[in-house]
Write a protein that binds this DNA or RNA. Structure first.
Lengths: 239, 239
DNA sequence: TAGTGGTCTAGACCACCTG
DNA sequence: AGGTGGTCTAGACCACTAC
């Protein structure tokens, strides 16, 4: 592994274990370069990572300070800046999927636009209910160009992202998410087992792979109040 | 201005104006260092900024590629990773506030925890309706320690963040946001002029200043469907 | 005035991709 | 094997803060 990553992890651990106290000054960059036996630039790269994460902030001419830590996020909340795929979020829980609908068809105009495909490029349409410990969790409607990779019902019982990673050398690296609230329609209320018109939290997502191709357009619906999403925002990045 | 920022802007402009086409290779770092007459490290810093923004991606041993551009976001959507303050989002629209409630009191337990204050540190409690072009837009309930800065009704007619920036040398640099959907209660439905139990999009926010102090705890409620929020996610940062 | 962080250089070596 | 990007160094100068 890289040196600046090691140093980053080392200092981060020292902060999280209160070895460096909140609000206190970190040692000067000169002292830290001696401690870790690296050049100042390498050390600075480590500090920049910490700064991007919001753990420290530097003031020119003064020093680098440890930020008071935000409360660690409650386990009930899911990070909004990670894949919606339940697989990644609840590692110790039993995730399963129930396939509601699976077929191929031609794309709608909106889908053509979002997936950057032509009107005669076929797409898969998939509707799944996601369950955690056999309890209904979300209702996911996704559309994927057939040209990306062949899909069958077996794949859909697990994580599609994992499958695409190992079989199509395709990784989710960027996503545009649009979030909003809406009343449950008939289908949603049935599937999520809530009453009609009750508030639903919706995440629309366009997923892009490492080369910037849009490969999935999906809408995920969550029962309100059961599910909250957390997002840590860092403005004023040094860059 | 810094050199790496200039180069970053220059290349970004070239990408956005299609001077460098989507999917195409950028010139090699060596050629670019000659073009801009800088060291490779400086150039690399510029490319890293572009990479963090998702405009390009680099493959070791191969080159740096221009990512196909995502659709520019619709004007109807507000970015979720910028201050909720309407002021920043709708620059060309007429923003106003209607003060519903303003007082000082002692904090609840939750507020003590979120704002990292003691039970006898007084807080301001503010309820405002935000309007765009005189149309109801959001209902904002915020709590702020009195110790941060003196507030009066005049300040509350404009942007509190602007006021804190100029009068208390305090800048919003980090925030933790929790988003979810809920049914409108009596107060919310009255203020936002919607029916009881209709879906409301909620953003809870803890705002931190440049030194990591929590200075505001707020809940903003938006009428569903009128308001959608967009978030661009970039995973796999090089770091 | 002294000390600190921010930027920048020229050059080196390594890891990876493509012929 | 050659070319590319990723990392790292030692040293320099500048900008800002604090005293």
């Amino acid at each position: 592994m890289y040196r600046y990553r090691e140093i980053y992890s080392d200092i981060k651990r020292d902060i999280l274990t209160n070895h460096y106290r909140a609000g206190a000054l970190l040692p000067t960059q000169e002292i830290l370069t001696e401690k870790y036996q690296v050049s100042r630039l390498t050390l600075k790269k480590s500090l920049n990572l910490l700064s991007d994460e919001g753990l420290v902030y530097s003031k020119q001419g003064s020093g680098t300070y440890v930020r008071p830590r935000m409360d660690s996020q409650s386990t009930e909340m899911l990070p909004l800046d990670l894949p919606v795929g339940v697989t990644y979020s609840h590692r110790d829980q039993k995730i399963s999927s129930k396939l509601i609908h699976f077929n191929a068809r031609l794309p709608t105009e909106i889908e053509q636009k979002n997936l950057q495909i032509l009107s005669n490029d076929p797409v898969y349409e998939i509707k799944r209910v996601r369950l955690i410990n056999k309890k209904v969790y979300s209702f996911e409607h996704s559309v994927m160009p057939v040209s990306i990779a062949p899909i069958d019902e077996k794949v859909l019982s697990g994580s599609v992202y994992d499958y695409l990673g190992s079989h199509a050398n395709l990784q989710l690296t960027d996503a545009r998410r649009v979030v909003y609230a809406e009343p449950a329609n008939k289908e949603t209320s049935q599937v999520l087992e809530v009453s009609l018109d009750s508030p639903i939290f919706v995440i629309d997502q366009i997923a892009y792979d490492q080369k910037g191709r849009a490969f999935e357009y999906s809408t995920s619906r969550f029962v309100s109040n059961h599910n909250k999403f957390v997002l840590d925002v860092h403005l004023n990045k040094n860059n």
